[in-house]
């Protein structure tokens, strides 16, 4: 019960302090909208439905990794994160509370292009349950990658730099812009080591019915990535205590 009280209050604090701030809300809307408009301006004849998996993935990836890496690094530099570490709550509860706000922010980000697309095309053929599940898992893995970055650096600018170091390669290697099968063998191996590859493929299946990998495999891989990233992040925080 005590852990639950702490969990909800950390989540509430993060939402009020960071995610519901006007700059973040506007960023959360403007960023996915800009991506959508960029794609439409580049190829005015393109099928919006074809673009949607990429736009959703990009929005979730950038929204979650940026927010968590920045908020935790910001709290660490102001030493308020220390206050959370010193509270008598388990590290798992603390980590879950911190990533839950980001996951919700990522889900919000993901549905901005969907709502935008809804004004232009018929979305009735989309498997929404699947889309929601996949968006959730992409948000979980991306948030945990953001957490991994946040606990590894000291300053906000370092968090942004390190995030971009893996975000952009991931975007181009996950099969959204270049099909994974067209990549050289080495990059194909790298691609299958990226959680977004499985998320993007599942979204393609849920929206356009043109996934390449089996749904079972992709879901399993996303869950494995989530658990592994959680364990690594936890280990990193514990390791900092021993330093």
């Amino acid at each position: 019960m005590k852990n639950l009280i702490a969990f909800f209050n950390i989540l509430k604090k993060d939402i009020n302090n960071y995610y519901l701030k006007p700059p973040n809300i506007s960023w959360g809307i403007i960023f996915p909208l800009s991506w959508t408009l960029m794609q439409l301006l580049r190829c005015p004849d393109s099928n919006i439905l074809e673009l949607l998996p990429g736009l959703i993935s990009t929005s979730v990836l950038f929204g979650t990794t940026s927010m968590l890496a920045v908020t935790i690094t910001f709290e660490r530099s102001g030493r308020s994160f220390e206050r959370l570490l010193l509270a008598p709550i388990s590290l798992n509860t603390l980590m879950l509370a911190k990533i839950t706000g980001t996951i919700l922010f990522g889900i919000f980000n993901a549905f901005v292009p969907v709502i935008f697309a809804g004004f232009f095309i018929d979305l009735s053929g989309v498997n929404w349950l699947m889309v929601f599940a996949v968006v959730f898992l992409i948000a979980v893995t991306s948030s945990l990658m953001g957490l991994l970055v946040a606990v590894s650096v000291e300053q906000v600018f370092e968090a942004q730099t390190l995030s971009n170091f893996f975000r952009f390669p991931m975007l181009f290697l996950c099969g959204l812009f270049i099909p994974v099968s067209n990549l050289p063998l080495f990059l194909r191996i790298v691609s299958y080591c990226i959680p977004l590859t499985y998320g993007a493929d599942l979204l393609k299946g849920a929206i356009n019915n043109n996934n390449i990998l089996s749904e079972k495999l992709s879901f399993s891989m996303l869950i494995i990535f989530s658990i592994a990233l959680f364990i690594i992040s936890r280990y990193n925080i514990e390791k900092n205590k021993s330093k």
Partner: peptide, 29 residues
């Protein structure tokens, strides 16, 4: 109870909300 060498509460929150938040971390209703 711990008081760090820096005043490390949350800038955006009021004094009252900061205290309530710290209480919540200790499981107080």
């Amino acid at each position: 109870g711990i008081v760090a060498d820096e005043s490390n509460l949350y800038n955006e929150m009021s004094g009252f909300d900061n205290l309530c938040f710290c209480g919540a971390l200790y499981g107080m209703n």
